[in-house]
Each structure stands twice: as structure tokens, then as C-alpha cells.
């Protein structure tokens, strides 16, 4: 009968084991990421039509008027929204103020939606072009 002995694994085996552990960790992380992405997608779907349009720059996109810190940094902290509104010459000053307030001061997606709905086609066109001029894209989202 053979006797079983415990031997120290070779260096190659240890490296292989470490690689496998790293792979397991990566798979687990990607699963978490998938769940988070799915949840974000569901939130997008739920808020879809009741929300506003999506503004994106450098691969990052957020709902215009949303209360997230990320869009605040992107539009308000950076001064981009001020520049965009300055470039939108066909929008009335009080509408511009209302857009800025609703995005950077008393942040409200509902208010943004109201302002957008009340804007004329010319004003919407001007806003879209001003976003474009400042490196932003405007996109629709699925309802």
C-alpha cells in the first residue's frame, strides 16, 4: 500500500494557484459589477420618460437636472453649464437663470423638465447646439 505524503508545491504550482485566485476574484468582482449595472439600468428604465434627457462628455453621461454629485462636478463645479448658457444666445435670461438654478442651486429634475417643456423649438435647438459647442452630446433614453 502506498503512503501519502504531503509535499511542498513547486514554485510553478504556487504561481498557477495565485493566478487562479486572481481569476476567481476578478470573476466575483465582474458579477458584482453586472448586478450594479443591471440595477442602474432598471433605475434608468424606471426614471426613463419621467426623467430628462442624457448629457454626456468624455464617455460619462448623466440625466440633465439629476441630483448626482457626478453631474454637479461635470456641469457646475467645472463652470461648463455657465459657458453653455452663455453660448445659448437665443434663450431668454430668466430661462437661463432657471436652468442654472435647477441644475446647480436648488437641484430638481422636475423643474428642469418643466423648463424644457416650456421652451420653444428655437430655444431647444440653441441649448442643444450650445452643449455641442462645449463638447457635450445630448441623447434620448429608452422609456
Amino acid at each position: 500500500m502506498k503512503r501519502l505524503t504531503l509535499e511542498r508545491p513547486s514554485d510553478g504550482a504556487i504561481v498557477k494557484l495565485r493566478k487562479n485566485l486572481f481569476l476567481i476574484k476578478s470573476v466575483a468582482l465582474s458579477h458584482c459589477r453586472t448586478v450594479v449595472l443591471n440595477l442602474t439600468w432598471i433605475i434608468f428604465i424606471i426614471s426613463g420618460c419621467s426623467s430628462t434627457f442624457l448629457v454626456s462628455k468624455d464617455g460619462k453621461g448623466y440625466f440633465f437636472g439629476s441630483k448626482s454629485d457626478a453631474i454637479y462636478r461635470m456641469l457646475c463645479d467645472s463652470g461648463d453649464l455657465r459657458k453653455i448658457l452663455k453660448d445659448a444666445t437665443k434663450i431668454k435670461e430668466d430661462t437661463k437663470d432657471a436652468i442654472y438654478q435647477a441644475n446647480c442651486v436648488n437641484r430638481s429634475g422636475e423643474k428642469v423638465k418643466e423648463i424644457y417643456a416650456a421652451m420653444t423649438p428655437e430655444e431647444r435647438k440653441d441649448l442643444r447646439n450650445a452643449f455641442k459647442l462645449n463638447g457635450y452630446d445630448i441623447n434620448h433614453m429608452p422609456c
Partner: peptide
Amino acid sequence: GKEVSFDDYGVIGLPV
């Protein structure tokens, strides 16, 4: 260019 959807019809989400 979304001239009609965004500017003229004020479309936000799709489909509308």
C-alpha cells in the same frame, strides 16, 4: 442630429 426629436417635438425618452 435630433433636430426634429429634441428641438421640434421635445422628445426625452424613447419610444414616443
